[in-house]
Design a binder for these strands. Structure first.
Lengths: 341, 341
DNA sequence: TACATTTGTTACAACGTTTGAACAAATGTA
DNA sequence: TACATTTGTTCAAACGTTGTAACAAATGTA
């Protein structure tokens, strides 16, 4: 069982009668090492099943090649595909990523940040928990002078790189579509307005209603975590406490699904009685009945841009640009849940 | 911007006029250090905003406190909640986890393993990609003498710790239920039989049919990746090429969803014409119409057991037990898609 | 008083790698 | 022949921490 020690460059050096530094240089393809020596080193390394010790190299170089990623939870098409892309891009550049989930909890998020900093990650790419309103822990990251990139759920005040879609614009697109379908009273089941993206969606919703001369009724607007349960509850509330609106724009697909359930349970026809539009185009959105119209957020593109933003910060640490905000165009995928014509 | 150097124990030592080792001992609460010194050290550490360098400590101690986790993809309720629990348990013990996704690709999985080993993880917890049939890379992990724990998608031949549910038993439970609902010709949309869990589900399905004296028709059995698309295709095939069975048992919820879609598109009533049962009780399963009966796999429990298995291996590296197979009881959640009575 | 034990600290090597300076040998140049 | 340059390697220090041995001082024991 106990397979002795791991092979180190010292072992290779001993076999060949050269010094460890020569071996190190050979392995790193240093131009001053002869081809013959390099070949020998590589051969012996293979024979001894040498595995470079990343930790030692990280210590010496002051660089861990680890990037921390913080997301609310992996259990959604959006986040898991953003991560997939980030991993893709960064792996190619020799980075590994440490994914942590906040589960929408501020405390957990702070713990994650501490853990990542402790692990000496070279940078952090994050999307904030719904609960997060204080930015002290993000300031802590900034104070360590490692790149911090936010995506989707970000904050203006932090003044760091950001990748996301145009949420304000999204609402406009949704409302335009619903108006075109003949809807006149449109409700909004939204996220918490303390989070920038949800605030923008709400703002966009209100402004778009104004634009189309539709009434803004505060009873038709709710804020929540946008869980399935939140969607159910808020839809039920709309049914119970007001005259039924003829459309509901939900700021998340899970909540939209919950809303859809409640509508069906109450024998309210979607889209005829109530048109429904969700947000984020999750995997199941096309699969439920009726299929759910939703805003596509271009998750792969977001992941790609976030990863590249990190890489750019790494290669140009003294770049003058202090903020780089990348805003993608949203796209509405129209499906049965909102097709009235 | 350039915030100088990071604080090290050396800096703290200088301030207090003691040696770095005293500081280290103080921070590690060594009993030989006086209370007064400890208090001083902690105070100065706070003042200088000291962050311990995990890399240095990892090198010295020969232990990274990093655990690698390999999953097919995070985008499912099952895997994301297993991970959540693993993270939970291991964080409490001072470990961070590095999550990597194989995307069901063997090549990607091998790359992930290499990356994790290179990062000097203290152990690996993995669930195999559908594509994986060779075990060479897993043997590589074993040869490094770090704990390897498999869950869900495992392999008998590797002879390592395993956590999963009783797949064979699951099929029996499903078939029993379907028989009780009056079904007489039950199809199976299964995973690839080269993967142990899917093999067991198929085996259980066949044996259960036998047990209830139902005919086994090879035309009613398909193997695939169990993606939504696979579910659609295989359901369509069942409709096109054979007389319609009166029940379909699908080995994954995504594929079951695909099958459900096709059934609805063909105006086949679920559950009256065809009863449908899925596997893994994903979030959306209760939310589609009709709601989908499914096997609950106790993902949190699996995560918990896997994490504990790792911890146990770490604390008792020379344990005689060479294999610890933990098999959980499956539970069928009966919903509308299979309720015929 | 003489010695043993406990307490609190220092000294130093080590973990495995990388890097810049130094150096010797080989080659080139005038 | 004398010197400059190039080539291939060695040397030694460093990254930040930890653990063991050593040591001095304080305290306990007879």
């Amino acid at each position: 069982m106990a397979n002795k020690k791991k092979t180190t460059i010292k072992d290779i050096a001993n076999v060949l009668g050269i010094t460890p530094s020569a071996v190190s240089k050979a392995l790193n393809n240093n131009p001053r090492i002869s081809k013959k020596t390099k070949a020998n080193v590589i051969q012996v390394a293979k024979n001894l099943n040498y595995q470079p010790n990343h930790i030692a190299s990280a210590l010496r170089k002051g660089k861990s090649n680890l990037v921390g990623v913080i997301i609310p939870r992996a259990n959604s098409h959006f986040f898991s595909s953003v991560i997939e892309k980030i991993e893709d891009v960064l792996n190619k550049e020799g980075y590994n990523i440490i994914i942590t989930q906040s589960n929408e909890s501020y405390t957990k998020e702070c713990n994650n940040i501490d853990a990542l900093l402790y692990t000496q990650v070279d940078g952090i790419i994050a999307s904030m928990a719904n609960e997060t309103t204080q930015l002290d822990y993000y300031e802590k990251i900034k104070s360590q002078n490692i790149p911090l990139i936010l995506f989707d759920r970000g904050e203006n005040d932090l003044n760091v790189d950001y990748v996301g879609i145009d949420d304000y614009q999204s609402s406009h697109i949704v409302i335009k579509h619903l108006v075109e379908q003949g809807c006149k009273r449109i409700a909004h089941i939204g996220g918490f307005s303390h989070t920038r993206i949800y605030k923008n969606r709400i703002r966009g919703y209100r402004d778009a209603l104004k634009k189309y001369n539709l009434p803004i009724e505060d009873d038709l607007i709710t804020e929540s975590n946008l869980s399935i349960e939140d969607g159910r509850k808020n839809m039920q509330k709309l049914i119970d406490t007001t005259t039924l609106p003829d459309a509901v724009y939900v700021a998340g697909d899970y909540a939209a699904l919950g809303a859809l359930q409640v509508l069906k349970e109450n024998n309210i026809n979607v889209p005829k009685d109530v048109a429904l539009v969700g947000f984020s185009n999750d995997t199941f959105s096309s699969l439920v009945t009726p299929s759910l119209s939703s805003i596509e957020q271009h998750s792969e593109k977001i992941g790609e841009l976030a990863a590249h933003a990190f890489l750019k910060r790494m290669s140009h640490p003294d770049e003058k640009v202090s903020l780089n905000k990348m805003i993608l165009k949203p796209q509405l995928i129209v499906r049965d849940s909102s097709k009235r014509k």
